[in-house]
Simulated assay, not measured.
Amino acid sequence: MVIKNTAVSSRAGAAPTIVDVAEQAGVSIKTVSRVLNHEPGVQEKTRERVLKVVADLKYRPKLSARSLAGARSFLIGLLYYDPSAAFVAGVQKGAALRCREAGYHLVVESLHNDALDIDQQVERMVSALRPDGMILTPPLCDNAKVIKALSDAQTPCVLMSPRVVSPDERSVRIDDVHAAEEVTNLLISLGHQRIAFVQGPADQAASGLRYEGFERAMLAHGLSVEAELVQAGDFTFPSGVAAAHQLLSRRVKPTAVFAANDDMALGVLAAAQRLGLSVPTDLSIAGFDDSPAANLVWPPLTTVCQPMEAMARTAVEMLILPNRVDNETSDSAPQQRVLPYQLQVRNSTCAPRGHAAPAIKSKKA
C-alpha cells in the first residue's frame, strides 16, 4: 500500500478532514473512525499507518461530529465526595490521562453523599452532559440512589472500591482486607502486640474492610482487639491528631498505630512528635494509600500503595472498551476488576523498645 503525501490536506489552507486521512492512508472512512475510537478489528499495520497520517496532517476530529455520528458524547463523568484530596487527585489524574489517550474528555463533579435530592442532581447532570459513562468513587459508589438514577438514565457506570457489587455491575478495587492484614502482620512480626487502629468514616466501605483485615490478623495471632485502642476518624488529618491524643493519653499506651488512611496516619505522626515521642522507637505508625505526603515527611510512612491512577484508568477502559480491558474479552460487558497493591515498608515502623526483630521487605499482592 502506497501512502500519499501527508504533508498537506487535499484542500489547500483548509483544516484536514477524516476524508483526507482516509484517502492518504488508503483506507475507508469507517476504518479511520475505528482507529480513532480505539475499536477492535483493525490490523496493527493499518492502525499505525492511519495514526501516522493523523499525526502528519495534525487532524483533530470535531467532538460534535463524532457525537452525532456515533450517538456518543465522548464525555466520561467522575463523581466524588471524599475528604482525602490525595485520593481524588490520584483518581482524577489517572482518569484524565486515559480519557485523553482515547479522545474523550473527563468531567469532574462533586456531590454531597447525604444530599436528599442527590438522585435528582444526578438526573439533571446526565440530562445536560449525556456522558458515555460515569465513575463513582467512595462513598458514592455505595449510594443506591445515585446508582439507580444512572441505571434509569441508561448511563453505564463503574464503581470504584464499593462495599459490595452485584454480578451485573462493573467495579474496580483492591483487596482492602488482605492489604490491612499484611500491614498488621508486619507490625506483629516486628514484635508489637498492643496495636491501635484508627478507623475511617462509617459510610466509607474501605474503613470497615480495613478494620476487618486488622482484626483478622490480630485474632489469627492470638492477640485481642481492645476497644479502647480502636478510635474513630474521618479520613482527615485533624481526626488523626484527635485520635492520637486519645490513644497516647492512656496510662498504658500502644506501641504501634495503624490508621486506615495516610491522612490520619500523618495526623498521628504529628501528634506523637508534638508530645515528644520518637517515631518509630517509641511508637510505630502505618497508614494506607501511599499518598504523596507519605514519602515526604520524616520518618517516611509505612503504608499500602493503592494504585489509584491505575484503578481510574481501568475504570475508564471499562466504559469505553467494555469487552477489551487488559486485552481480555468476555460475552458480557460488566466486570469486576481487582488490581494488585504493594506494601511499602519505610522508616515509621520498627521493633518496639527491647524487642529485636528481623528486617521486613516490601511485598506485592
Rank of each mutant, 00 (worst) to 15 (best):
V8I: 06
V8W: 09
S10F: 13
S10H: 14
S10L: 08
R11C: 07
A12E: 11
A12S: 15
G13D: 04
A22W: 03
T31P: 02
V35G: 00
V35H: 04
P40C: 07
Q43N: 13
K45M: 08
T46V: 11
E48P: 11
V50G: 06
K52A: 14
A55Q: 15
L57Y: 03
K62T: 10
A65C: 14
A69S: 14
A86Y: 11
A89K: 13
G94H: 13
L97M: 14
E101G: 14
E101W: 10
Y104E: 09
L106D: 01
V108G: 01
S110W: 12
H112I: 00
D114Q: 09
R124D: 01
M125W: 03
V126L: 12
L129H: 11
A149C: 02
T155I: 08
P167T: 00
E169V: 07
I174C: 09
L187D: 04
G191F: 06
Q193F: 13
A196N: 01
Q199S: 09
A205G: 08
L209M: 13
A217Y: 04
H221D: 07
G222Q: 11
S224R: 06
E226C: 08
G233S: 11
D234Q: 06
D234T: 13
F235W: 08
F237I: 06
G240T: 09
A242M: 01
S249N: 12
V257C: 04
F258V: 04
A260W: 02
N261S: 14
D263T: 07
L266W: 08
G267Y: 07
T281S: 10
S284Q: 09
S284P: 09
A286W: 01
F288R: 02
A294Y: 10
A294M: 10
N295G: 15
N295V: 15
N295D: 04
P300W: 09
A310M: 12
R313E: 12
E317T: 07
I320Y: 12
R324E: 14
R324N: 10
E328W: 04
E328F: 02
T329M: 12
Q336M: 12
T349A: 05
H355I: 12
A356W: 07
A357N: 01
A359N: 08
